[in-house]
């Protein structure tokens, strides 16, 4: 099956006074119809910039290269007018903090209706009715009343539901959710995620879920792409990546997570060091300064590793991957010696 969205060699740089910051450096991934792809990484790994560049929502100081193929159409070459038709209608976005992402001066219903209005030839009343319908779908009680309220009258979880309602109101084929639950209380995070996934399955909308939270990924994503310092370091099905990772960075992330099925008394092992500055990223493999397996002879410090298939459908960018997979060393990262 042809992928719905095919991103190849995506490179995004920002011109700043200190030089060009390469936020994204040659990212490849694809999303198939109806599937949920998680893009995982720490702050500064370039995952949000990747998402924004798909819809060309970055400030003019950004330069985007590579190719973004949307159902056979190159989005990077598309006109601004065409992009406006794509945004919201074909690819919708959900943002992290729904309080600041919703306009405080318009009613929630107006904001949903505005979305419908800009892509469908509908009357005002129909757009409003659609807003009520969407609020009902995302499980907001008393939608008839809520539709006339302002974002500040909603709770955090309700606001994110309203964002989801807005995102899905034009039945896009792909939803890009940028850390949709990060700003929410832990207690409502799961509810909101379940709702998003459930609705997307029902409407067979594909999802790109951007998160730093591997726990979120495990439960709901079909495939996962792990980013580090603007590059993809590993990608594959969730099961493969979680159970048999092929990259030391993913192994580090996994070992810094508490697990229910492991030894509950085992200490969590953080990844040593700091994420690199993107103004002057490390040579070779960007992860080498923090990698417990980095080796001079393998070329970790000098040669940029390529993203190669290690097992069927599982890719990783690590010079020592074959050897580490062979010996099972990655599975023991963080385990007591």
């Amino acid at each position: 099956m042809d992928p719905l969205l095919d991103v190849k060699g995506l490179t995004v740089g920002f011109g700043t006074d200190d030089g060009v910051v390469q936020a994204v450096r040659g990212v490849d991934f694809e999303v198939r119809s109806g599937e949920i792809l998680a893009i995982v990484g720490e702050s500064g790994s370039g995952k949000s910039v990747t998402a924004m560049s798909l819809l060309k929502l970055l400030p003019p100081s950004a330069t985007i290269e590579g190719s973004v193929d949307w159902a056979g159409e190159s989005l990077l070459d598309a006109s601004e007018q065409r992009m406006q038709a794509v945004r919201g209608n074909e690819i919708a976005m959900i943002f992290q903090d729904p309080l600041s992402a919703l306009n405080p001066v318009y009613k929630v219903g107006q904001q949903i209706a505005e979305m419908v209005h800009s892509h469908r030839k509908v009357s005002k009343a129909d757009a409003r009715a659609r807003a009520v319908e969407m609020l009902t779908q995302v499980g907001i009680p008393q939608p008839e009343k809520r539709v006339n309220q302002f974002p500040h009258e909603f709770s955090g979880g309700m606001r994110q539901r309203a964002m989801i309602a807005m995102g899905l109101s034009c039945e896009p084929r792909l939803i890009v959710a940028d850390e949709p639950t990060t700003a929410l209380d832990v207690t409502v995070q799961a509810q909101v995620l379940d709702l998003l996934v459930d609705l997307c399955h029902r409407l067979s909308t594909a999802v790109i879920l951007i998160t730093h939270d591997l726990g979120v990924v495990a439960g709901i994503a079909d495939r996962v792409t792990v980013m580090y310092a603007g590059r993809v370091v590993e990608s594959g099905s969730v099961d493969d990546v979680f159970d048999a990772t092929a990259h030391p960075y993913t192994a580090g992330l996994l070992s810094s997570l508490p697990r229910l099925d492991g030894d509950v008394a085992a200490p969590l092992v953080p990844i040593a060091g700091q994420p690199p500055s993107m103004l002057n990223p490390p040579s070779g493999c960007s992860f080498h300064p923090r990698c417990p397996f980095a080796k001079e002879e393998a070329g970790c410090m000098t040669i940029v590793p390529t993203l190669d298939e290690r097992r069927p459908g599982q890719l990783s960018a690590c010079h020592r991957a074959p050897e580490l997979i062979e010996t099972g060393a990655l599975l023991r990262v963080g385990a007591p010696a």
Partner: peptide, 22 residues
């Protein structure tokens, strides 16, 4: 610079509408 302006753009509004309304 506000976040909701980015949302407005992501909704597919024209630049004119983004400026005028949001």
């Amino acid at each position: 610079r506000l976040d909701h302006v980015r949302t407005a753009r992501a909704k597919g509004l024209s630049e004119k509408k983004v400026i005028r309304r949001h």
